[in-house]
Design a protein around this nucleic acid. Structure first.
Lengths: 251, 251
DNA sequence: TAGTGGTCTAGACCACCAA
DNA sequence: TGGTGGTCTAGACCACTAC
């Protein structure tokens, strides 16, 4: 018997359990990087068998919300670790003689060009669930691979969630941007959707990316979501794909 | 995807079972669209418990090799069905008033421009595991959405695997190309990797896609694999993204 | 050695589908 | 009604990690 109220709609126990665990994550009961209680403890807490908790955790770890480590425990996934630094950046250098071997990391650096408070244009507001005119922060930055500018990002965030975010704070943080978001603002990016197009560089982008106006660029428009499928970031990126490519796996 | 360097010392039972099932698929014991034996039958056949077979099938169905249907059985995945027609085509129309609602399908048609036998150039040969000069078939085709040309594909296939493939046969087949491949040639595409770039249209592409030379196009280079991670197709696509986009999900 | 996740089993019962 | 996959349990044992 379970301690959970029966619902008129059929929902298997393990799904109810994964819902409860997600709520605890959302509420901050366990923070990114933390260990969560063992399967046996959770089974006692929710009054179900270990196998049911196991299946719930399987699902959450397939969704990249949790990470299992045999012998150690189950941890809340985080963007602040080395291995997951590029989980959302699909740009990879074209293979070439002298290029870093698989597993090695290309030298990457960044430069923040600004962080300003604005009223959200209609399209931005729609994308991140605000009303036109609501306050948003806009961040502009460049990414450099091996010293060459390759990515120009414009990022919009709801101002209400990121109070006090500045260029200086962004520059000072060591690690990926989403690591800063979860550590300083309690906003964890869980998944994202991207729309990709080919566009011609305008004068602005051309000068920042050090190429000719009209040159073809990859336009990558991303909406990122936190727990509960809540959109909290719109990002428009322009990628120079002369010596890099966007990689994707089709299953 | 590559679980290459797995320790040979320990392989769980369910993984051995999923390996045996994969071999049966590869050998054609069960063909695309067929039902495979029930979990109980497989458990008896392999002399393990139903739970172990279950876990093996879970993995294979997560890899899209099998499809479970409650109450009916477990089926070999196929490209020849309506619902999976677009599993490998990530191009979607930009949302616009008057556009088909989610779930509806954009009218799509195609035109084959040629199918010729060639000696494989070095880069093509490398991509699909042949030696330079080996015989390959090259297919060129256009895809039209709502009557407008949007995709120009150049496709290379090992001639040894696709004997007798012609433009006529391609045109005559109703359904997706990969459906023809599995039905007529016994080659089933299981997964693929894509590299995406922005390029400028050359004269040839511009005229076929009905746009100006130099216009930005999405270049999508795909290598598709069959069972056993064997590369069997190279495809270079040029997508007009003025009113469509390549969609992707990041988990 | 103790605790964690990982595997495997056996059996009961539920939800879905077809004849 | 009988067969399929789906859920849930209980318990045994294995593999990995830390102390």
């Amino acid at each position: 018997m379970s301690a959970i109220a029966e619902s008129p709609l059929f929902s298997p126990l393990y799904r109810q359990i994964s819902g409860l665990i997600t709520r605890s994550l959302q509420a901050g009961e366990w923070k990114p990087g933390d260990v969560i209680p063992s399967e046996i403890e959770l089974a006692q807490r929710y009054k179900v068998s270990q196998g049911t908790v196991r299946k719930a955790i399987d699902d959450l770890s397939a969704s990249n919300l949790l990470v299992r480590r045999q012998g150690k425990g189950t941890f809340v996934a985080t963007h602040a670790e080395e291995q997951t630094r590029f989980r959302f950046l699909r740009l990879a250098p074209d293979s070439a003689p002298g290029a870093p071997k698989p597993g090695e990391r290309e030298p990457l650096s960044r430069r923040f060009l600004g962080c300003s408070r604005q009223r959200a244009p209609a399209d931005v507001a729609r994308a991140i669930g605000l009303r036109a005119g609501d306050a948003v922060l806009q961040v502009r930055r460049l990414l450099y691979f091996r010293g060459q500018p390759v990515v120009l990002d414009d990022i919009w965030l709801p101002a209400a969630l990121f109070k006090g975010l500045t260029s200086n704070r962004l520059s000072a943080y060591r690690g990926p941007m989403y690591g800063l978001f979860e550590a300083e603002f309690g906003v964890r990016m869980v998944r994202a959707e991207e729309q990709i197009r080919a566009v011609a560089a305008d004068a602005d982008a051309a000068s920042l990316l050090e190429l000719d106006p009209g040159a073809p660029l990859l336009s990558v428009e991303r909406v990122a979501y936190t727990y509960g499928d809540r959109a909290v970031e719109l990002r428009r990126g322009l990628y120079d794909t002369r010596s890099h490519h966007y990689r994707n796996e089709l299953g």
